[in-house]
Design a protein around this nucleic acid. Sequence first.
DNA 1: ATACTATAGAACCGTTCGGTTATGAAAACT
DNA 2: AGTTTTCATAACCGAACGGTTCTATAGTAT
Lengths: 111, 111
Amino acid sequence: MTTDTLSPVFSALADPTRRAILLRLMDGDASVSELGAPFAMSQPAVSKHLRVLEGAGLISRSRVATARYSHLEAKPLEQANEWMQQYKQFWNEGFDKLDAALADYLKENPS
Amino acid sequence: MTTDTLSPVFSALADPTRRAILLRLMDGDASVSELGAPFAMSQPAVSKHLRVLEGAGLISRSRVATARYSHLEAKPLEQANEWMQQYKQFWNEGFDKLDAALADYLKENPS
DNA sequence: ATACTATAGAACCGTTCGGTTATGAAAACT
DNA sequence: AGTTTTCATAACCGAACGGTTCTATAGTAT
């Protein structure tokens, strides 16, 4: 069993609200109410999103008085990033084709 | 309106079968039955996965005789990658902390 | 024309998702 | 001690997901 760790990460990233929360956390740790403020949704909905992010390892949480602070954890993002880097060659391919076209052009039209 | 294009991409990547299909497509275009062969699932299930990938722009499709060939399209992967690059600084942070800890250690234990 | 091959589409099913409202718990304030 | 603030949990709901089976379609081959 390979205990798929990437799926929950991509799944968490699939929601725009959660992506926005992660971006917000780049500016520093924040409480549930702070994180939820920009969104037109109930507090439990925000809590649910945070639980998903925590489940994917994308955030860790700690208590400060009554508040629960979320902290960005970037390792899963790094793993997901590494997975995608496999395709780097493919999104350079476009440029390669352009280069080839340019080479052909120069061959027929010597400068 | 921002017409969220990242969500369908991450959503498509959240399934291990679909990620495997994308990896397979790095070796070249392939028919539905070829793509489905490694998996213990019905043909319509594979077709569904391909539709999801196509909907996210991750593959394009063409007909050759009765077969339908899938072709890897890396631009959405690149976009998703770009989104994640925002966090690059964060997954270097760990090393920074390690470096700091090492510096502290060396200060107290001069070599 | 007939039959076969490769794939898509429709209908269905149980589970998960993203949201809601209502309620409970823990720490802080007075 | 009682109230307020901050958050979590539970129960519910409709929609989407990942799979199935059964059927239809479009080319190929005979």
